[in-house]
Amino acid sequence: MTTPTGTSTPSISTPPVPHSVGNVSLSSVAPSRSKELRDGGSSASGTFGVKSGLAQMLKGGVIMDVVNPEQARIAEEAGACAVMALERVPADIRAEGGVARMSDPSMIKEIIEAVTIPVMAKVRIGHFVEAQILQAVGVDYIDESEVLTPADEEHHINKHAFKVPFVCGARNLGEALRRISEGAAFVRTKGEAGTGNVVEAVRHTRDVQSAIRQASVMNEEELYVFAKEIGAPYHLLKETARLKRLPVVNFAAGGIATPADAALMMQLGCDGVFVGSGIFKSGDPAKRAKAIVQAVTHYNNPKILAEISGDLGAAMVGLNIEPDMKGGRLANRGW
């Protein structure tokens, strides 16, 4: 081993890539994190390169929330690039209330057995022992998620300490860069989970993009001040400004319920989408799942979007986002 296991965020060296809302350049990529290995027979696992690399393989895809092996199979047949195993979808967590925790490991193992695509699972914010358990179970990605009840109201998990990669939610650029600094290899801009209402996902994606555009024209002195204002590590902010995008893969999540919602998030510059309650709370999950998968591939082709958006059965019943809504504002969790 020439590379220590996931101890730091390596420096990045790729040229800037163009990126803008509404006119997304397809060449926009998160940079390579692979380090050159020095001697002939050496190899290294759990590097930041392979952690962020798996996220790069998921790009242009849909990650679907599933609660049992049957749903996982439906998701795989529809073309999901990964599934998120959890006990209750966000809409039910919202409706039923109570403390939401990591899922039963034996249920997660059944889902891993049922499908060949990557399996992700959620842990509570700050609950590093749930993360240790999921790493031992053999999940492919861990989501440190605000959808579950936080276990720590101050600290997130030190994600560098794990071989398994992490995805985290963010509402704005500062939050995204804090998560990356803690070791997240993948970021999802938060929507309001379990609502079927895309408005918060749009708000937060636009916030992140707008802050990146501001940062991209700042000089060094201004970047130091901006880093302080948004609570972001300076070196990651500088890298983001240079790349004109987040330095890791960025999906949209929360409230996506239709193929048009998914294509909207892609046109706003996301690399892919998570769909939670939107599929299995709808009238015809298999058909809707397949349509959302196609919408993410053909997001720039309204003619294909029109074809796949028809005859999907009932969409999930949406909720309006209000301060006193049932289950509260999940997106506000995370520090």
Binding site: L37, S42, A44, T47, V50, Y141
Partner: peptide, 17 residues
């Protein structure tokens, strides 16, 4: 064979000639 090495924890980088 797909996923020849198993889950993501087994993913790795190696020097090749």
């Amino acid at each position: 064979a797909r996923n020849g090495w198993g889950s993501q924890v087994e993913s790795f980088e190696a020097a090749l000639e």
